[in-house]
Simulated scan of single mutants.
Amino acid sequence: MSPRISGHDFGDSAGGSPGAGTNAGARWSVAAMVIVLVGCVTGVVACFVMTRAADAYPASHRRVTARIVRVVGPPGGGGRSLPAPGADVEVSWTGRDGAVHTGRTHMGPLPDLNGPVRVWTDAGERLDWGPPGNGTIILGSVLGGLAAASAAWSAGQLLRIGRRSWTARRAVAGWEQEWKDITAKRR
């Protein structure tokens, strides 16, 4: 039988004394709701910000048709810690000014070496990664929400520990004063 059903209240204090901390369940429920709310709000805001950035990306970048000049290296080259599928390639494309530009990039699944590929360039005709995809936005939102919820939980724990130590320090100071009063009366 659980302590709730049997009518025993073991409280929230260190010794588990009956009657202490009768609102412990309510406090934990409120704290849990606040932590979840912080995580959800942060995740939604992160999703909104990343979606707006992805939508605004084509205003400062453009997608061009390029061709693969040569395969530079196998997957995982170029100092990557983990190999990525595909290969590092050098591509060439015609810029807005009509000049031919070249650059190196990583192609995921390696396309046909003789066919055209689509790459993103910035205003300076340098290769860029492109806007974040839906999966990246979702993952970033979830991880941002979890990080915010973890930070909120950690801050709550630090506040609880600080409150307990402050209370203990005041109690010890009160006991010391009582001891001083008692010893002063005995003299």
Rank of each mutant, 00 (worst) to 15 (best):
P85V: 14
H61S: 03
R52Q: 14
G43Q: 01
W28D: 09
V64G: 02
V100T: 15
G115A: 15
T94M: 11
P18T: 13
H101Q: 11
S13Y: 04
D12W: 03
L82G: 11
H8Q: 13
G15C: 04
D9H: 06
T22S: 05
A32K: 06
A66T: 04
S29L: 14
C47Q: 04
V64L: 11
V38I: 15
T42C: 05
V119F: 00
T51W: 02
R52K: 13
G76P: 02
V91K: 00
T105C: 10
V30N: 12
C47L: 09
V119T: 03
G16A: 05
D9G: 08
G124A: 15
A32P: 01
A54V: 10
L37M: 15
G11D: 01
S17H: 11
H101K: 09
F10R: 08
R63C: 01
G76N: 11
R27F: 09
S6Y: 06
T94W: 02
R52D: 12
G21A: 03
R52G: 07
S60F: 07
T65I: 10
L37K: 11
V91T: 09
G73Q: 14
G103Q: 02
L110E: 09
V64Q: 03
P111M: 12
G19W: 06
V72Q: 09
P74W: 04
L110W: 06
V30G: 14
V91Q: 01
R27C: 10
T121P: 01
E125G: 11
V38R: 03
R126D: 12
A20V: 09
V119P: 00
V44I: 15
G103N: 12
R63V: 02
R70H: 15
G25R: 08
G86D: 12
R70C: 14
A20Y: 04
V100F: 08
A66S: 05
V41E: 11
V71F: 09
M50G: 01
